[in-house]
Nucleic acid binder design. Sequence first.
DNA 1: TTTAAATTTGGAAACGTTTACATATTGATT
DNA 2: AATCAATATGTAAACGTTTCCAAATTTAAA
Lengths: 335, 335
Amino acid sequence: MNIYDISKKAGVSIATVSRVINGSSNVSEKTKAKVLAVIEEVGYTPNAFARGLGLNTMQTVGILCADSSDPYMANAISVLEKELRVYGYNIFLCCTGYDLEAKQQSLQFLVNKQVDALIFIGSNFINEDQKDNEYIKNVAKSIPVMIINGLLSSENIYSILADDYTAVYDATKAFIENGRKRIVYLHNNLTYSIRQKIRGYEKAMNEYSLAAHTVLIEYTQKSIKEVKEQLLNVHELIKDADVIMCANDTIAVGVLKYAKEKGLRIPTDVEILGHNNSYITLCTDPELSSIDNQLEELCKSCVSTLMGVFNGDTVPLRLVFPSVLVQRQTTSLPK
Amino acid sequence: MNIYDISKKAGVSIATVSRVINGSSNVSEKTKAKVLAVIEEVGYTPNAFARGLGLNTMQTVGILCADSSDPYMANAISVLEKELRVYGYNIFLCCTGYDLEAKQQSLQFLVNKQVDALIFIGSNFINEDQKDNEYIKNVAKSIPVMIINGLLSSENIYSILADDYTAVYDATKAFIENGRKRIVYLHNNLTYSIRQKIRGYEKAMNEYSLAAHTVLIEYTQKSIKEVKEQLLNVHELIKDADVIMCANDTIAVGVLKYAKEKGLRIPTDVEILGHNNSYITLCTDPELSSIDNQLEELCKSCVSTLMGVFNGDTVPLRLVFPSVLVQRQTTSLPK
DNA sequence: TTTAAATTTGGAAACGTTTACATATTGATT
DNA sequence: AATCAATATGTAAACGTTTCCAAATTTAAA
C-alpha cells in the first residue's frame, strides 16, 4: 500500500497526496478531505525510508551514554526523550559501556543511521585522547553534537554544563567556615565533570591552607559492596575525617554504610555529602545530603538549544547552570 | 558522496560497489580490494534511508516502556540494547508515561519509523481495554511484538514472563508455615504482572484460611514520601502486621521508612519484602529482602527469541522464568 | 584449440517518497 | 465577456540504494 494506491483511489496525482500528507497549504479543502478519507479508510502510513530519502531526515536523534541503567543517565534519557518527542523527534539509544573502542563503534553505528544530531550524556566520552576527540569533531562537521556535562570546544559542538565547580567550592568553603578541617574528597574517575568537582574542592582547601585528600574509588556497576571494600584501604582517613564529600551518590551511600558499620554517628562524628541528588538519597537512613546538578534543566536546555541549531538560530556554544546543595540528614551546616 | 562517486573512482559499476559493501561472494578479490580502498580513502558510508528503502529494513527495534527513569525499566533497556546491538540492531526508545492516549501515539510513532519489531517492557501497556489490545494485535500483523512481563495471546505476539505468581505464593506460604499470620500485600496498580503477584498471595492466604489484605498505594514517580503518606491511611494494618509484602521495592522502601519512624523494629516487629530486587534494596538500613524476577534473563531471552522469529524458526509464544526470593535483613525466614 | 560451465561484471528497474516546474482551473477585476 | 492573478493539480525527476537479468570474462574440461 503506497502513495500510488492512494492517489488512484482518490482520483488525484501522487503529488497531491503527498501535499495532503505533509499539510501543504496549496490544496483545496475538497480534495484534501477526499484524500484523507481514503488514507483513513485503508490505514495508510507513508514509508519512512522513502520519506527519509526524499527529505534527508527521519527526525531522529542519537543518544550516547555509558550505561542507561545508571540512575543518573536513565533520568537524563527519560527527560531528553520526552522533550524531543514534543518536537517530533525519536531517539536512537546507544549505551557504550566505558570502553573506548565500543564507544567509537557505537558512534559510527548511530552516524550510519543518519541521525540528525548526537547527544552525549556525561563526559565519559570526551577525554584527552586526541584521536577520539578528532572523530567526534569530524562527526560535528555534518550534524550538531550536544554534550551534557562534558566539554569539547569545537565548531558545531555544544556543551550544556552544571557548574559543579562552584557548587563544590561553595560547599567545601561552607564546611570550612563552620569549623570542619579534615575534609576528604572521594571520586570514581577523572572525567571532565569530576575534574571540575575536584578543582572546586581543592581551591577551597587551598584558600584555607588545609590539606586536600582526594581518593579514587574504583567500582564496577553500582556496587556498594565494592565501594565499602575500597574504603578499607583508607580507613584512617575516613575515621578521622570531619566531612566526606563524594563525587556521586553511589559512593556516598557506600561511605554511609561503611561509617555506620564502623560505629560512627552521622552527622555527629562525620558528615557525608553526595552528588547528583539521585533517587537513592531518599532510601538511606539518615537520608543523604547531596549536590543537585539540575539534570532535568540541563536536558531541557539541551533540547531547546538543539532545536535552535536546527532552526539556524545563533545559540551559545556553552551553557552553564548552577548546581545547588540539598541538605538532608547527613550534613549539619547552618541554613 | 554516494555509490556513483565510488563506482567512478574505482572504475566499476554501482552494482559491484554495492556487492562489495554487502559482502557478496560473487566479486573478485582484486576489484573488492580496489573498491574498499576507494571507500576507505573518501570515508564513504552508505545512506541508511536508501538502504532501508531497498532492503525494507534499517535494522531497528522499537522499545516501549512507561518510564525509562524507573530503575527497573532502565535496567531492562540497558540489557536489551546491549543484546540487540550484538545482532546489529539499534533501538528506538519511547517512554509513554502511564496515559493510554500517549501510549497509542508512541506506538504509532514507532511503527511509522518502520521498526522491525516492537518490545514492550512491563504490562502497563497491555490492559483489559479491548480497543487498545486490538491496536497492538494489528501491529503484530506486520511485525513481531515482544512483551516482557506482560501477556497478550495473539499471533506474532510473544510473552516473556517471570513466574511471580509462584514466587509470591511460595514466599507467602513460607511466611505462614513459619508462624506469621497477619500478612499484608501492598501494590501500586493492576497490571497483568501485579495481578499475578496478588493471585499468588491470595492463593496462599486462602489455603491457610487467613484473611488477605491487599492495599493499593498510589504514588507518582518514585516518591517515597507519597508512599509514606498513603500508609498513614492504613496505619493500624501496618502496625499489627507480621509481614508486609510489596509489589515493588519502592513501596517496600516507603514501608521500611514508615515502620522505622513509627518505632517498629525490623524484622523483629514486622518483616518487609520487596519485589524486583533492584539497586535500592542495598541502600536501605536494614537491607531489603526482595523477590528477584531475573529481569536480565528475561531480556536476553526476549532478544534471542526475537532473532529466532526473524530467522523464521518456530519459537514458543510464551516463555516463563522462575523468580527467586533474595533474603537480606528485612525478613527472617529460616534458610 | 574449442566448448561448456562457472564466475564476475554491468545495465536498468525497483523501492516510495518529495518537489520544481508546467499546466489547468478558479476567482476577481475591468 | 475578457484579462490577469491566484490557486490547485499533475508530470517527471530526484533521492541512493539493491538486485534481477543479461552480458562478458575467466576457468576447466575435452
